[in-house]
Design a protein around this nucleic acid. Structure first.
Length: 489
RNA sequence: GGCCUCAUCGUCCAGUGGUUAGGACACAGGGUUUUCGACCCUGCAACGGGAGUUCGAUUCUCCCUGGGGCUACCA
């Protein structure tokens, strides 16, 4: 009673799922979501999450693209539990399966050339194969073989109907008359996708096929192959595709679609897991922040939405801001240091700040930014003196009576302050405001503009402390000079 | 064209045979006597249309419309 290796996992009841992308350039966020659902399902059921690279289309598949997939999954900590399976290395298995189907009468040779097929299709207006070669006699077949005619292998679709239960869509039923005698093996001997998936999924012991909705219509065809091969048919769950704002399938023209672009734009892995996990799935309540741990704990196929979801950039952006605000410096230190170097070489910063400076800025600003990069672009005043002052701010806060005197005195006050902590700075400023009988805002706004060049940002006192006394005094003096030169014109 | 599938605010996600149909993003207004793309509050805003079942349908059924998918010797 020896069990074959390929079936042991099925009989043991272990859940085995897979993500099966084709390496054609990038790792699409839609693909990532499919991978995530598979991963979550596997983890929830203590099963295995596998990866199969569908690289049989040699023209479009490249080694670089395979690395893109691996890198993307690694970034999200979604790496498979076993070595990836490369479909291109399994062609012998596919061919053997097709051969078996031919021998068992589930497939037949088709000698029609593509040109002939197209011509007949056009003439009849019928899209399906006319079964021309199914009616060939054995003698005719032998003759053609002897003549060296090339042939493809087609499945012989049986009578009746195919039905299955889809985890998302429920009961599905298709009449076999709707199914074409599709090709299993091309005239050049190469297996088609339809054959390869089934053989691979069967060999990998896949118990649950969770994949994109675009395969829903292919499923009956694949079930026919499972039947012909005598393999156990897995459970299916077809996840609706992700759409762009115009409700068209999400693609390049909608902007960023590859996970790499999101990573490079400053999104955190946690953001993407959270966002994608809740796009088309929900635990049944209305939460919108959820951890990977909770996702694993709560995930089930019945929670998958049956309608397609639109990818909303504004929402991911917001979510990323939420995550940044919860993130300790240590977690993003490396990334920020790299970004700082990039910003310096791009001219955003005049020099590369050290880790301590970056941490100070991070702690002060992490709740107000949406992307890691924002720290070195919008908030670059934390690292370099402003070389330009916001125009509206200048009119409102610089070109007012007394501003120059105020700033001058304040700079002196700061220089002689016992310490430069926020509380001391605040006390000094409030004291002067009272003395001069002006609102605190009259001093705060010009100071902010002088020290940051912009009119928005964190609380002023904290910001000044973070910048440090020397920087603050220097920037005030710079601003003073700038205002004076303006007045002289 | 044929087949499959889907349908709650602009978007994401809840929800029920009887609810003021809820939360979030976005947007708008207000607040924060220290600003702001941060935070707080408020507001705007949906059950696609038509039949049927039912005492009663957003919820169940059918049709229509609209969206998406498949229909390759691509995957």
């Amino acid at each position: 009673m020896a069990k074959s290796a390929e079936n042991s996992s099925l009989t043991s009841g272990e859940v085995r799922v897979r993500f099966a992308p084709s390496p054609t350039g990038d790792l699409h966020v839609g693909g990532v979501r499919t991978a995530l659902f598979n991963y979550l399902f596997a983890r929830h059921n203590n099963g295995k999450f596998l990866l199969r690279i569908e690289d049989t289309d040699r023209k479009r598949s490249t080694p670089e693209a395979i690395n893109v997939i691996l890198d993307g999954l690694a970034w999200l900590d979604l790496l498979p539990d076993e070595e990836p399976v490369y479909q291109s290395k399994r062609i012998e298995r596919h061919i053997a399966a097709a051969q078996k189907m031919l021998e068992d009468g589930y497939a037949y040779r088709c000698f029609c050339t593509p040109d002939e097929l197209e011509e007949r299709r056009r003439a009849s207006g019928d899209y399906m194969y006319d079964r021309h070669c199914l009616n060939l006699t054995e003698a005719e077949i032998q003759q053609k073989l002897a003549d060296g005619e090339k042939f493809a292998l087609r499945i012989r679709v049986p009578e009746g109907r195919v039905s299955f239960d889809d985890g998302v869509h429920g009961g599905m039923q298709v009449a076999c008359t709707e199914i074409d005698d599709f090709i299993l093996l091309r005239r050049n001997g190469a297996p088609t996708y339809m054959l390869a998936v089934v053989v691979d999924d069967a060999d990998m012991g896949i118990t649950h096929v969770i994949r994109g909705d675009d395969h829903l219509s292919n499923t009956p065809k694949q079930i026919l192959i499972y039947r012909a091969l005598g393999k156990r048919i897995p459970e299916f769950a077809h996840v609706p595709l992700i759409l762009g704002k115009d409700r068209k399938r999400l693609s390049k023209r909608h902007g960023a679609t590859s996970i790499t672009e999101y990573r490079d734009a400053g999104y955190l892995p946690e953001t993407m897991i959270n966002f994608l996990g809740l796009l088309g799935w929900s635990p049944g309540d209305d939460r919108d922040i959820i951890s990977r741990r909770e996702l694993i704990e709560l995930f089930d196929i019945s929670g998958i939405q049956s309608k397609a979801a639109v990818f909303d950039d504004a929402r991911v952006r917001w979510l990323n801001g939420q995550y940044l605000g919860m993130t300790d410096y240590g977690k993003v230190e490396g990334k920020l240091e790299r970004l700082a170097e990039d910003a310096a070489s791009a001219g955003e910063l005049t020099e590369v700040p050290d880790s301590k400076e970056i941490k100070t800025a991070w702690d002060l600003l992490k709740t107000r930014i949406h992307f890691l990069n924002d720290l070195f672009t919008d908030c670059r005043y934390m690292f370099r003196d402003p070389d330009v002052y916001d125009g509206k701010g200048v009119r409102k806060h610089f070109l007012q009576n007394g501003v120059v005197d105020h700033l001058q005195v304040l700079a002196d006050d700061f220089s002689s302050l016992g310490d430069f902590r926020a509380a001391s700075v605040e006390a000094a400023i409030r004291k002067r405001a009272e003395e001069w009988e002006v609102s605190t805002g009259k001093l705060i706004h010009p100071l902010r503009l002088a020290c940051s060049g912009v009119t928005g940002g964190p609380g002023l006192f904290e910001m000044l402390e973070a910048l440090g006394r020397d920087t603050v005094v220097r920037r005030i003096n710079n601003a003073l000079n700038w205002i004076k030169s303006l007045n002289n014109k």
